[in-house]
């Protein structure tokens, strides 16, 4: 074999070994690399309630409630909604400003703690955007179609 072809082969073999190594590493770190857990994973894993975690899913339709509460002399708006992954759901309470894209039926990621009564006390709410981009008119046509199919 020519010397330069041998060098090429060397590089490719090293690269392949390195890739396999990295893959093994990433597969084992999977739990630490996810940005958020789904509600089902939260129940499966029995997570430590003192740790800050992130939970993501869909905001369940007609679950969003806002009520004004007196906390420490100030009247604040307590927001509560349900996050679902269509298998399990988790109830979230939050005090603060919601992002503009926050809507029922849309994706959301919340960061905070699980309280003793199973509620999730969110410190941050992030809206998750999906990969669909379309003008408002087309969205209207699509939602009408979906509604008709539903009937």
């Amino acid at each position: 074999m020519k010397k330069k072809n041998k060098r090429l082969l060397n590089i490719l073999v090293y690269l392949m070994l390195f890739t396999i190594g990295c893959l093994i590493l990433l597969m084992n770190l999977r739990d630490n690399l996810v940005f958020f857990y789904s509600p089902s994973e939260v129940f499966q894993k029995n997570l430590d309630p003192t740790n800050k975690i992130r939970v993501g899913g869909m905001v369940k339709k007609t679950s969003l409630k806002k009520e004004v509460k007196k906390i420490k002399g100030r009247s604040l708006e307590q927001i509560s909604f349900v996050i679902t992954d269509f298998n399990n759901e988790i109830k979230v309470s939050y005090i603060g400003i919601l992002p503009d894209l926050f809507k029922e039926g849309q994706g959301v990621v919340v960061e905070g703690f699980i309280t003793s009564n199973g509620m999730f006390n969110a410190k941050t709410v992030l809206a998750k955007h999906d990969e669909n981009y379309m003008p408002p008119e087309i969205k209207d046509i699509k939602s009408i179609k979906e509604n008709n199919n539903g009937i």
């Binding site: 999977r30 992030l126 990969e131 669909n132």
Partner: peptide, 19 residues
């Protein structure tokens, strides 16, 4: 992994989910 960033809208295998 589950990420905050949305998945790709344009891929070879399916029609793009961008209008």
């Amino acid at each position: 992994w589950s990420t905050l960033h949305q998945p790709a809208s344009i891929s070879k295998l399916s029609s793009p989910s961008i209008d």
